[in-house]
Design a protein around this nucleic acid. Sequence first.
DNA 1: ATGAAAGCGCTAACAC
DNA 2: GTGTTAGCGCTTTCAT
Lengths: 336, 336
Amino acid sequence: MRKTKRVTISDIAALAGVSKATASLVLNGRGKELRVAQETRERVLAIAQQHHYQPSIYARLLRENRSHTLGLVVPEITNYGFAVFSHELENLCREAGLQLLIACTDENASQETVVVNNLVARQVDGLIVASSMQSDSDYVKLSEQLPVVLFDRHINDTRLPLVITDSLTPTADLVERLARANPDEIYFLGGQPRLSPTKDRLAGFMQGLERAGVTPRPEWIIHGNYHPSSGYEMFAALCARLGRPPKALFTAACGLLEGVLRYMSQHHLLESEIHIASFDDHYLYDSLSLHIDTVEQNVPRLAQDCFEIITQMIEGNEPAMPQRVLPATLRWRHAQ
Amino acid sequence: MRKTKRVTISDIAALAGVSKATASLVLNGRGKELRVAQETRERVLAIAQQHHYQPSIYARLLRENRSHTLGLVVPEITNYGFAVFSHELENLCREAGLQLLIACTDENASQETVVVNNLVARQVDGLIVASSMQSDSDYVKLSEQLPVVLFDRHINDTRLPLVITDSLTPTADLVERLARANPDEIYFLGGQPRLSPTKDRLAGFMQGLERAGVTPRPEWIIHGNYHPSSGYEMFAALCARLGRPPKALFTAACGLLEGVLRYMSQHHLLESEIHIASFDDHYLYDSLSLHIDTVEQNVPRLAQDCFEIITQMIEGNEPAMPQRVLPATLRWRHAQ
DNA sequence: ATGAAAGCGCTAACAC
DNA sequence: GTGTTAGCGCTTTCAT
């Protein structure tokens, strides 16, 4: 099996009785000043064809200084939103002749460092990252070397190119209604308190309460991280503390909700009266027994914008509008 | 921004006042016969460090004839099962120092050809494929060039290395119970009739009916393809034909079920009496208002086995047990 | 209209 | 101990 010696351009040049240079010209269809005789051209092409000539991409990449490769770093590819993002981005890349390299961090900063280093070592032309880091300093440094675009999460007021969904407004809308229906008890389950999505969504939560005329109690705000297991644990602890499930709940991301739902189904709480709202949507939410109001991000648009920005940067241009905040859509599932 | 001229091994060799060869030895820690003076070693290392020397991976890859890269081709990364598979495989790859290249086919044979060609042009060391093709002939040909492992789907009795989940037995078990509860009407929604999962699951369906003593009617068997939209359409057509939802239904894959659920929620059918069973599980099924019995594949195991086989082949060995059929688990959600 | 040769950055065989 | 050299496969001047 295999070990079929590679057929190189020298081989087909020799077989066609021309020089490597001529062969190269022909094979790359440099039709501009194709000063190569029609007849030679056909001969070379024919030989290449019948020997299944495949240019060595690595020899080529060694010359130009581009890898025609884009790195994507996400917390979890099994998270539906990131899967949709990856899918969209992959299509854009394919059309543009780029290869997408996807790496997952499992919401883990040290693993993030590892995978980013791998991608940089692979000489990706650009990097698109949904970071789980507390600070953007690594990426600021990196961006001196290559184009970096952050998305989904806004770390410490970074000035790096960025595409996120507006969290505050829609969260406030969602929570306002939640609070009007349940003024006496409404919990917030969030990720790391220093990550921007958490902060923004918490701000939205507060604003929603205020609009509904509800005064928040400190014990309503609970932080963990964005891993589903964290959602499970926060919710389990909460139920233990209360001796029952909470009356109303807002989860700041779909991973957290995943953990909550898992706990609820394990403890047969799905028929209870709990009123849930969440950031992030999923197609299966339409079929749940619980009616969950959500904020749906425009994920394809997120991907398109990231792609647009990174391509501009790779071309060497300053990107137009390097920091973008996209609007979200509310998905109401509760009877009003 | 960027365009920082690459610092090469020649540069640091010059700066350290040694030859490229020495520098190369030191930087690769070829400690075996490290006949390089301790002092020189430190000097080189120091210089490399402070100039952030990063070896050009493409120069290296050009020499060895390996890309340290694995290609994965799946129908849809947004399909939960394939996302889990990718995630698992990515971890295995990272530990082994490989880069995983993921490409999606959208269940589309011609797109599959395109992405496979891309990956081959990228000189992946091996290819792991869940194919949507009708025939394995392309892959048989390809496998003369590089190691290919198929998974999830068994095309036309291929003799290529293969890892799949046993469909027949668990489907029969599932359907038997379904048929005992609903002997007079039970539909099968499947993908392309010539794909192995469809055939095996249909065979399991038939066996289940037989065990339950139910005689199948020809109109119960409906074929489409594995795209969710196909599930939606088949189910819509069925409802239209019957003038009501069917009493019992088996869907042959989670993508199809996705389409069915979408239709049901749009048409407010989620509270109806329909009895559903399906191949493939999803964590959210525990939280649905419908109780859906499923066959759960051992996806991490699937990924591990594919990885094991492909690595063996890349090393040049014949893989042990090149065709593997893994057992599945039944997930009962209906009261018995 | 075509060929010769240099060079992308790296490693390894073989000197010295 | 360390340096010289060739070569991986390709593209691109610059001659001819």
